[in-house]
């Protein structure tokens, strides 16, 4: 097992993510799914633009806060060529919209309301995520 194992900070971070999703659910009546928020900003629906823009502004402000307080917390620690990064980005963008959700929408929100669709989605993307991560590791020596 990795020496980087950090169950305590991971749990605390998870509690904060759950708190955020709960504020959106009880306060706004919406699912805090990041791919849905971004997709909804790219294809605006009337009345749904304000909260999505505000949530994105909060995410970016949070990023700024982290960069000011603890910049080491944001790091790109993989050897990936620009081409591999573009391919990964396209897959994540297209795939999350096609499948109606990502780690937050299906993972946190969907599993919390015991959605069958979300359970299937989470098992699927965890599996293929493991496959591609292991493929880069074993077939390309960790660099692509």
């Amino acid at each position: 097992m990795s020496p980087e194992f950090s169950p305590l900070s991971a749990t605390v971070g998870g509690l904060l993510i759950g708190l955020s999703a709960s504020l959106m659910l009880l306060g706004q009546g919406r699912v805090a799914g990041i791919s849905g928020v971004l997709g909804g900003l790219l294809a605006p629906a009337p009345g749904e633009l304000g909260w999505r823009g505000a949530f994105l502004a909060g995410l970016l402000a949070g990023g700024g806060l982290i960069m000011a307080a603890q910049p080491d917390a944001i790091s790109f620690g993989l050897e990936r060529s620009p081409l591999a990064i573009v391919a990964a980005g396209l897959l994540v963008g297209f795939g999350t919209r096609l499948g109606n959700g990502c780690t937050s929408g299906h993972g946190v929100c969907g599993l919390s309301r015991f959605s069958r669709r979300s359970l299937v989605a989470v098992m699927t993307f965890m599996f293929t995520g493991g496959l591609s991560a292991a493929a880069v590791h074993h077939l390309f020596g960790g660099a692509l």
Partner: peptide
Amino acid sequence: GAVMFGLGWGLAGYCPG
């Protein structure tokens, strides 16, 4: 969609958030 998302996630280590 979930298959595609997972492949990209494992490749670069980023999900949307």
